[in-house]
Amino acid sequence: MANDNTNVSIMRSGLGRARGLGAAKAGYHHWWAQRVTAVALVPLTIWFIFSLIGLLGASHAAVVTWMASPINLVLMLALIVAMFHHMELGLQVVIEDYVRAEKCRLATLLAMKAVVWLLGLSAAVAALKMGLGG
C-alpha cells in the first residue's frame, strides 16, 4: 500500500508545511463586510428615504433642528459609515474587474478609496457640526 502513494503530490507549499497552519480564514473579509453593510443599509435606507421626504423643501433651521435630534444624528452617522464602506467595497470590485494593468489598478484603487473616505468624512463632520450645534 505504501508504495502506491509515490505518485501522490501534496497540494501544499513548503512554507505552509513548515508553519503547520491552515488558512488564516481572513480571505472572505471583503465579501463578509459587504454583506454586513448591506444588511445594515436595509433599515437605514428606509429610514433615510422617509426622513428626506419629510425634509423636502425644509428651511435651513428645520434641517439643523432635525439633525440635532440624537436619534437622527446617530442614524445619519450609521448610514454614512455603512453607505461609504459599502460603496468603497463595491467600487473596489468594479475596479479590480475592469482595470487590468497592475500599476494603473493600484493607482485607481487608492484614488477611489481616498475620494470615498474624504466624502464620507465630510458628510460625517457636516452631520456632527449641525447635530452638536457647532
Binding site: 439643523v64 453607505m83 457636516a126
Partner: peptide, 25 residues
C-alpha cells in the same frame, strides 16, 4: 451601484452646505 456612488456627491453637497449655513444651503 455605480450611479448611487455618483449620487452620494449630492448627499455630501447637501449635508456640507447645510452645515456651512443658510446661504449655501
Amino acid at each position: 451601484g455605480i450611479a448611487l456612488a455618483a449620487g452620494s456627491l449630492v448627499l455630501v453637497w447637501w449635508l456640507v452646505a447645510a452645515a456651512r449655513g443658510a446661504a449655501p444651503y
